[in-house]
């Protein structure tokens, strides 16, 4: 087990380095000149050169990459061209908002997905199974921004129950765990949780159905174990796959959804990424992408380790 952990950790290093290279190249290959977007149209060639020099964009690419990597390694992601604030601060604030949304939607989708999937699997082809099936098929097929807009129309516009935009009543301050802020969290949570919940439920159901068909269920019955003890075996067997899917779904949510965050004006990483792109804010874009990519490398590592800890079959291979 320890060997597996060490090996898996070592694998993560070249992956992480590769990711930085890809992030850097993507931003620099992308067409358009960030400086000309920043400066007024009538800016002279001289002013452009001056600005490029200020942001270090006049150096050869490998040098730029090395400098950027060195700074990133100590947490310095540069300064946002748009706001003039450090990219690290901007990203940190956005990450907090996205994490709040992801945790809330993650809890909802994991709990509900797990329970619905389990019940559907146990009552295979029963009424509950068909209902859950219908529910989860709609869950995975509806575009989540469409659902987000629908939620806003129904609950904010028509019913006026819940606020449609922002993290709280006052946009300038951050999120706080009180009812005024929780109200703002409800609709984004529902919109974010729908697809992951459906995916988790379907995975869990498939796992339960698969386990129930296995020979060892007969052995457990023949041993005289009561149904709840057999259920424990079923859950333990279906869990590794479901956990992996939960991890990946949670990861996706932690990455932030550009569309859902934009619909609800939720100032998370997705929202930040979108504004960085529209404003051609190169350092901000690079910094946000780097943080997100590193996060996914880390997440995959965690998922692999957790899965191998819960499933003895993986460790051997």
């Amino acid at each position: 087990m320890l060997l597996y952990v060490v090996r898996r950790l070592l694998y993560a290093v070249p992956i992480a380095l590769g990711v930085t290279l890809v992030v850097f190249s993507l931003v620099h290959i992308a067409p358009g000149d960030p400086i000309s977007a920043l400066l007024p149209n009538e800016a002279t060639e001289e002013m452009l050169q001056q600005a490029r020099k200020e942001f270090g964009l006049d150096r050869p690419l490998p040098v730029q990459y090395a400098i950027w990597l060195g700074h990133a390694a100590v947490g310095n992601l540069g300064v946002s061209i748009g706001s003039g604030r450090p990219v690290a601060d901007e990203v940190a604030a956005a990450v907090v908002n996205t994490v709040i949304l992801a945790v809330s939607a993650g809890l909802l989708s994991c709990l509900l997905g797990f329970v619905l999937g389990m019940v559907a699997g146990l009552r295979r082809d029963g009424l509950i199974d068909h209902l859950v099936n219908l529910f989860t098929i709609s869950g995975v097929s509806l575009p989540h921004y469409w659902l987000a807009i629908l939620l806003v129309i129904v609950f904010s516009v028509n019913l006026s129950w819940l606020p449609p935009l922002g993290v709280g009543p006052d946009t300038s301050d951050g999120w706080r765990p009180d009812w005024a802020h929780l109200r703002h969290l409800i609709l984004p949570t529902l919109a974010t949780a729908a697809i992951p919940m459906a995916v988790i439920a379907r995975t869990m159901r498939a796992g339960v159905v698969d386990v129930l068909d296995q020979d060892f269920i007969g052995t457990l019955r023949a041993k005289g174990l009561p149904p709840r003890r057999i259920l424990w075996h079923v859950v333990r067997n279906a869990l590794p796959t479901t956990l992996a899917v939960m991890g990946l779904q949670l990861g996706n949510m932690l990455g932030g959804s550009v569309l859902v965050e934009t619909v609800f004006a939720w100032p998370g990483t997705g929202f930040l990424l979108a504004s960085a792109i529209f404003q051609r804010d190169l350092p901000l874009l690079q910094g946000t992408m780097l943080v997100l990519a590193m996060f996914f490398v880390f997440l995959n590592l965690i998922v692999d380790l957790v899965q191998s800890a819960t499933d003895p079959r993986i460790r051997r291979s």
């Binding site: 060892f216 052995t219 457990l220 075996h233 333990r236 067997n237 590794p240 499933d311 003895p312």
Partner: peptide, 8 residues
């Protein structure tokens, strides 16, 4: 092989 629970 199949009659024993693989994860216990």
């Amino acid at each position: 092989m199949t009659a024993l629970d693989p994860v216990f």
